[in-house]
Nucleic acid binder design. Structure first.
Lengths: 202, 202
DNA sequence: GTAGACTGCTCTACACTGTAGACTGATGCC
DNA sequence: GGCATCAGTCTACAGTGTAGAGCAGTCTAC
């Protein structure tokens, strides 16, 4: 089968996303998806050439949800909107989200988001020569932040244990009491504000 | 077996790292590691409780190589040194590197790197209350950049194809010709310079 | 009205994965 | 000698992605 069927692709992706959301990425097997769709595992291979392609399509589906409904407002508002939508997406689909960092987002919807960012940066007065770089800088950070957040890289669980062995960690000791974070929304907002200052110094 | 043996842990991790470097993360199976060590798969379970723990240890081993030999120079030089070392690491071990973003780096060496960054930020005059946040901002970006680079998220392969369908991508069309990147070293350096301006406005 | 092609799917099978459980042979201690 | 501990093996199980063959139904052409 050279040409793939498309009719039930959305249905299959819905099933895959639901499984990942409910039981994690490890549970996302071809067999599990097939069962949920009510079909034999091998039937899926009429719609996606293999599991990797299915995952790619899943990333594409996620990106579709990223495009903001309204593309209005100041450039700061628009950038902020996209960043927040990205973070929201990560929280809604923590298991699948990290795939965004690995599977190059060349889907039409992915490119459309990039275009919106380009436009915001141009409106902000970023020199044309710098726009693509700044876009990569910002989106890399936003993706990285969202992933770190949902994956617990920022886990402060061990903050206290860190400071306890302060002997060889002078800076940690000095910062004791400031390591815990209670408001990630505020942290993210502060980060964005800092990045905005890169985009247009005030 | 409650308590784990440690004697051959380094040897096992070396084998695991070599396999990942040579044949990718997918090829990193317990059986493959065991064969390379010259032992039965089940023998590994005397040294690591399961595959996840082995991977965690692998991340720890990577981080050990991150700690700079010299902790001297201006704060800019020190931060830059760590950032470049991180990027170098990603290129040396592209398959394993992404694990850094997912497996919280609470190993002693990981914390030591964080401490060095804290110290650099303090030296730069960052208010104590902001130091941990800025550390997360910078390290999130650096990790994200390195991963994106080795994983091809920045792939410019499709840049031309993007601009071709310029109709609904106005900003892309306007930036045509500026989308290709030939020097990632320069891009990374420029990004770092921008981030330094967040740390201490000039 | 029947032959042939096409579609959408199933069934079986293979090589591979992580790892639980039981075992063996060697070493060191009393 | 007797026993415990250790390092490693062997077997087995449930699960994975997917190749290859086959099968019932529908559409088209003569």
């Amino acid at each position: 089968m050279r040409k793939l069927k498309t009719s039930r692709q959305p249905e299959i992706l819905d099933a895959a996303l639901a499984i990942a959301d409910e039981r994690g990425l490890d549970a996302l097997s071809m067999r599990a998806v097939a069962e949920r769709v009510g079909v034999t595992p091998m039937a899926l291979y009429g719609y996606f050439r293999n599991k990797d392609e299915l995952l790619d399509a899943l990333v594409g589906r996620l990106l579709t949800g990223l495009t903001p409904s309204e593309a209005a407002g100041t450039w700061q508002e628009r950038l902020s909107e996209i960043a927040q939508a990205t973070r929201r997406l990560a929280r809604e689909h923590p298991a699948v989200f990290p795939l965004l960092l690995f599977r190059a987002s060349v889907t039409p919807d992915g490119v459309r988001v990039v275009d919106l960012i380009y436009q915001a940066l141009l409106d902000a007065g970023v020199p044309e020569a710098d726009v693509p770089r700044i876009e990569r800088l910002v989106s890399t950070f936003v993706l990285g932040f969202a992933i770190s957040e949902v994956n617990g890289r920022f886990s402060s669980a061990s903050d206290e244990s860190r400071t306890r062995r302060g002997a060889d960690l002078p800076a940690h000791r000095r910062l004791a009491g400031r390591l815990a974070v209670d408001d990630w929304d505020a942290e993210f907002a502060a980060d964005l504000a800092d990045l905005m200052r890169i985009i247009r110094p005030v």
